[in-house]
Simulated assay, not measured.
Amino acid sequence: MVQFKGPDSSEDTAQLGAKAVLPETVDVNIRQLDPIPAPRAFINELPLSRDIIKLVRDSRRQISDVLHGRDDRLLVIVGPCSIHDAKAAKDYANRLGELKSQLSDDLLIVMRVYFEKPRTTIGWKGLINDPDLDGTFNIRKGMWLARRILLDVAHQGLPAATEWLDPITPQYLCDLVSWGAIGARNTESQVHRELASGMSMPIGFKNSTDGNVKAAADSCFASANEHHFLSINLDGHVIAAETKGNPDCHIILRGSTHGPNYSKKDVAEALTALRASRVGEAASHGVIIDAAHGNSGKNEVREAEVVEDLAARIADGENGISGVMMESFIEGGHQDPGPLNTLVYGKSVTDRCIAWPRTEELLRKLASAVRMRRARAAQDSQSGGEAQTHE
């Protein structure tokens, strides 16, 4: 059983009761208000070491370099669909960290560490919302656990990726995250575009659930510009935030309700549309392809086949693919959520995931594909130089 400590909030509870607004017209549908300590309290209790700060800063720069074409490696964002077990997350990070060190010349590996899950209707909304998977919704514990897990991942030398769903969550966690995503359901949201404009990391916008790529392109353009909006600071105070704009926003092709969109034709069409629009260099240089979700019908066997198809195309010299996303865990498939002591260890409680042995095989194939693409590019460059000499 996880021993939860976390910052004390007894003073906050007393203040909330003393300053509560009269209930006649406010909080009519609120059953309870549970105070959560300000972000700074969590950061002070679970701080970053100098080595972890360097890891986060360096990996953000490296991801930006891949997205802009300054680094010819392939960005690979891989890990569980969602995190529900701190021990299994650390175990997975240890395995991935060992492989990352072997493949770092060809792949920039970032671990998926997703704590918030958008639901089409209702369901388990992630570790932050319900860390015990039992409907007790101890969000204070969930936030503390999320931060601790991110530190565990960083200690394995791994950058972390997550989806930003709630606009308040980043203040608690973003110092430990190297890459962020805005999901298909939120890609047209003004709130999330404003949020992305001020984030200190590259942000990927997924195409809408109906396959609309223009909405994600508009998000990249909007997020590259400055915004002014209400937010909170590290001390939990309401502030008016003024952002500079984020130059590292880009597109994620994740398929749609109508089917996949990872084909060579889909990528070419998306890039043509992006280059004709007002998006920045990162978005117009290439796309990230999510092999899960609509591109595989949420089937882990099919997802692995999608990754293999992408590897073959990369090896053949196809440009425009900056990165690949994979949902992977220790065990393949998925199971229904429930208390930890009732669950299969290392198996997803949300979407189906590729098992670790198959994941390792696929990552090695992607690394080999990058080497082949690099050799092909060098050969083409040499051939071009020789042709110019003869002329």
Rank of each mutant, 00 (worst) to 15 (best):
D218E: 15
E242W: 05
E226M: 09
G259E: 14
H228P: 00
N233K: 09
D218A: 07
N246M: 11
H228V: 12
I251H: 01
A241S: 13
V238H: 05
F229S: 05
C220D: 06
N225M: 15
L230E: 04
E242I: 08
L253H: 01
F221M: 13
H237I: 06
S231C: 02
F221A: 11
H258E: 15
N225S: 12
N246W: 09
T257W: 07
C249R: 00
G236Q: 03
R254M: 05
I232H: 00
I239W: 10
S219E: 11
H228E: 15
A222E: 13
K244I: 07
H237W: 07
N233H: 08
P247E: 14
A222P: 01
R254D: 03
H237C: 10
D248P: 02
A224P: 00
H250W: 03
F229Y: 15
E242A: 12
H237Q: 13
A217G: 10
S256T: 07
I251T: 06
D218Q: 14
C249W: 02
A217P: 01
N225H: 15
S219Y: 03
I251F: 06
I251V: 12
L234G: 15
H228D: 12
S231M: 05
F221N: 03
I232E: 03
L234E: 15
L234A: 14
T243M: 11
E226S: 15
N246Q: 08
L234S: 14
I239C: 14
G245D: 13
C249F: 03
T257L: 15
H258R: 11
V238L: 12
C220Y: 02
S219F: 01
I251P: 00
L230F: 09
I232P: 03
H228N: 13
V238I: 15
L230T: 14
L230Y: 05
I252N: 02
S231W: 15
A217K: 00
H250I: 02
H237L: 13
L253I: 05
R254G: 00
N246C: 05
A224M: 13
T243H: 09
E242N: 12
N233W: 08
I232F: 03
R254L: 07
A217Q: 10
R254S: 04
F229N: 09
H250A: 01
C249E: 03
A222V: 05
I252L: 07
G236Y: 00
E242D: 12
